[in-house]
Design a protein around this nucleic acid. Structure first.
Lengths: 190, 190
DNA sequence: CGGATCGTTGATCAACTTCAACGGTCGTGG
DNA sequence: CCACGACCGTTGAAGTTGATCAACGATCCG
């Protein structure tokens, strides 16, 4: 559980076991059933979440009332609405468990104290955010550079094990098109 | 010039003037004419860039040979291809000056030494990346949530001063559609 | 003054959505 | 353990949105 986060920390920073255990005190374990919400639009974005086991999705509701998924997070990924988290404002996003999921949550204020007491954690989060931002740049390249159809094939080729974990309608939502169209693409490529 | 970066640092972290001047030694000033490239696809992404004055754009070339802009950076923004930067790999992006532009550049190795000697800079970059990542999340919400037409109006309303700085064909590219279609939208809304 | 670049217009075309309907499967209550 | 209902994936027809291509005018800059 928290061993997993410690292991993840040590990949990016040097921290002794003693400190690592003190760091873990700042986190709370939360367990979610499938489809259970961790965060909802209209609430203040209180915490940042590390996925220990399972899968989360970040989505919002469009003007037309459709759930639009923008991100997934699986084991060892962090997820939150980072502008709302940083400014402790209300979010317009939801975070929901795609399957039974276990996360470690750290509230904004706990994170502030953590960073003050353990400045080496600044480096850890710097690396996490840099990587996440870099990944979002690459993703933009895919979105702007590929048609929806090639976008699907690209994701299918690149993350086959992940694709199998999530229902098709969520994948369609994430890729930015309708389940019907996804069906059509799948039929073609056979 | 470097005063501007120092001023920007002090908004996020506490650093005395003496240290700040030592920090500035890690940066080089680079001046670019309009349309001059700061980085090109195929090269290793050597540096991270802080815009002192002017405007940069990040773009790539699609399969069809079209320049696709994915980001702009104006005064006080950082820009690079962060995955390629972090791993010191070749990039698939170009960075080009939209207008006459002055930047402060820090190479990957200089940044590594900087962070080692001045650990408080970890916090600065942590905040920069967190904010940039948060902004990219909000942007995804716009892209997935709005039609291309409302996307244009939204950007027009929100960043009028910026819109006026860049040519229309770059705005069209950034928003993900053709200059012809942008023309059509502008005609409608009158 | 001349050439390249940029914005505009209109016609045609492709990509993707919408809507309605159907069949399979999964989980839950009886 | 079965039966029912809800949910999910699929299909097809019709409709929209935005791309493509070609051509023209304006403007900017050398």
């Amino acid at each position: 559980m928290s061993e997993q986060l410690i292991k993840h920390l040590t990949k990016s920073i040097e921290i002794d076991l003693d400190d690592a255990e003190k760091v873990m005190v700042f986190f709370q374990s939360v367990k979610l059933d499938k489809k259970e919400n961790l965060m909802e639009a209209g609430q203040v974005c209180k915490a940042n979440y590390f996925v220990v086991k399972g899968c989360l999705r970040l989505f919002f509701i469009t003007d037309k009332g459709v759930e639009q998924t923008t991100q997934f997070a699986i084991e060892n990924w962090w997820l939150s609405d980072y502008l709302a988290f940083q400014n402790q404002q209300t979010t317009e996003f939801y975070i929901q468990a795609v399957e039974r999921t276990e996360v470690l949550a750290i509230t904004f204020h706990a994170q502030e104290r953590l960073l003050k007491e353990f400045p080496q954690m600044e480096k850890y989060f710097r690396i996490i955010y840099q990587r996440a931002y870099g990944a979002s740049q690459v993703r933009m390249k895919y979105e702007y550079g590929f048609s929806r159809e090639t976008l699907y094939h690209h994701f299918n080729d690149r993350f086959p094990e992940f694709i199998q974990r999530i229902p098709q309608y969520l994948l369609a939502s994430f890729l930015g098109f309708t389940p019907e169209y996804l069906s059509e693409i799948r039929r073609k490529k056979k």
